[in-house]
Design a protein around this nucleic acid. Structure first.
Lengths: 260, 260
DNA sequence: CTTTGTGAAAGACTTCACAGCC
DNA sequence: GGCTGTGAAGTCTTTCACAAAG
């Protein structure tokens, strides 16, 4: 989905399905909670419930990692935590840079879950000279001019983009040129990257629209109305269609959360 | 994925695949940009490129909505904007409440894309009495005690949870009890909701872990090493495993962005 | 008797490739 | 000639259901 292409032609087997990879962090979180409560083992049924998936799926997922369970008993919590952590690459340190320290960037910098699990905020970068030097979450913000230098001297391979949409592609290009190969994009834009670079996006607006779709569907079902061709409300649509234009300032973008 | 269940047993046809629904907002964004530039028509090829998908997929997606294109020509931009907006339910106003006005909640409240496209921030809610009355993004924060009242009097059906993980389920329960049927969850927890309620989650930590997985894989490939059973670094893992425990304060949760 | 691990079946999504219409 | 719309093929994902292991 967000993964440009997994890798070259065909790597030797051991291919864990993308859908499974996306669930491993979920299992890991549930397992960590169990570990804290010193629970020694879990059944696929219990763990699945804690992670919000069904047990067959969980067992199939784990089968791609190997046979780490014991029939009739379940899985050893500590051991599974270890195996999943290793599989996800969390046994090493990942220095991360956050570019765009607006409301959202600051929120991300303060995010506790960031620091845990091997992710370390190596630097905060912003284009606003007024921000430079000011500490956010205890880390001094650095100017965009330093970007390449920071990436290279810290060996950063993961970058988080929290800039306005208008600046995202440009920032992305610089990150990639400097050596970043994985990007988490919060700006509402499609980023173009060369092969070999992974991009994942988080887009509030898209999530809300998906919810609205289902919400509308529920409402229609309730009153028994088929959402066929009822003519709609053109006026309302016209408003929606021009909404984007409205928030666009003279030079293309108005800051805000992701924006700004 | 995040959708508990789409609906009852089987609604009368017209079922747009979930994967397609998830891409409609993407197309809509690209189309809106074209509309602003007064581009009258687009081919599936051009629009697909702008949305970052391939053209066959886009055509198939549009085919679920109906036949809105013209062979040999392409799609009428304005008309498509209208049709997609209507399909997504963006022709009506969706009052939204944001619960948990920490760093992240404030960032969301300030998000411009929120206000556009029919979403309107009806209220900001926080459990901290000190926050009450203070305006964020021009909207005064209200205390959690008001939650039910706010939901009911504003007819809110979409709620955004940006509280610490520890408070999320409780807030969720109250939102649902008060009538909310769609939830966007930023807290790193699995929410349990009754049938008929949709939950979508946005989880920074999970996205980073997925990136780390691919990043690790790239590194291994590069040096030609098979990531088989190299023993790993148990020490590092032990650290990662207990990370969650470390950030947990005396009373269960420390504020920050999502966590807090 | 319990619970895993997994072939096989079912289902969802994507891509191909081309007939059909402009 | 150009481009959409779509069956059919291909791929990925989930679910079933049960043999095998403890």
């Amino acid at each position: 989905m967000a993964t440009g292409r997994t890798h070259r032609p065909a790597t030797r087997s051991r291919g864990i399905p993308e859908a499974t990879v996306a669930r491993l962090p979920l299992y890991l979180r549930a397992l960590t909670a169990l570990s804290e409560r010193s629970v020694p083992t879990v059944s696929s049924e219990e763990l699945a419930a804690a992670a919000g998936v069904n047990s067959a799926k969980l067992r199939k997922d784990f089968s791609y990692l190997g046979s780490y369970g014991t029939r009739g008993v379940g899985y050893d919590v500590e051991y599974l935590v270890y195996q999943i952590s290793r599989e996800l690459g969390l046994t090493q340190d990942w220095p991360v840079v956050i570019v765009g320290i607006g409301n959202l960037g600051a929120a991300l910098a303060n995010y506790g879950g960031f620091a845990s699990r091997g992710f370390r905020v190596a630097a905060l970068i912003d284009a606003d000279p007024a921000m430079a030097g000011r500490p956010v979450a205890g880390i001094p913000v650095q100017h965009t001019d330093e970007l390449e230098h920071i990436i290279e001297s810290n060996g950063v391979s993961i970058g988080v983009i929290a800039t306005p949409a208008g600046a995202a592609q440009q920032v992305c290009d610089r990150l990639v040129a400097a050596g970043v190969t994985s990007i988490l994009n919060f700006a509402p834009t499609v980023l173009t990257v060369p092969d070999g670079v992974d991009v994942r996006k988080v887009d509030l607006s898209i999530e809300l629209q998906i919810l609205a779709f289902h919400e509308q569907r529920k409402a229609g079902e309730e009153t028994g109305q088929e959402s066929g061709q009822e003519g709609g409300t053109p006026t309302a649509v016209a408003r929606a269609a021009s909404a984007e234009a409205d928030r666009k300032g003279p030079d293309g973008d108005v800051p805000a959360v992701m924006p700004a």
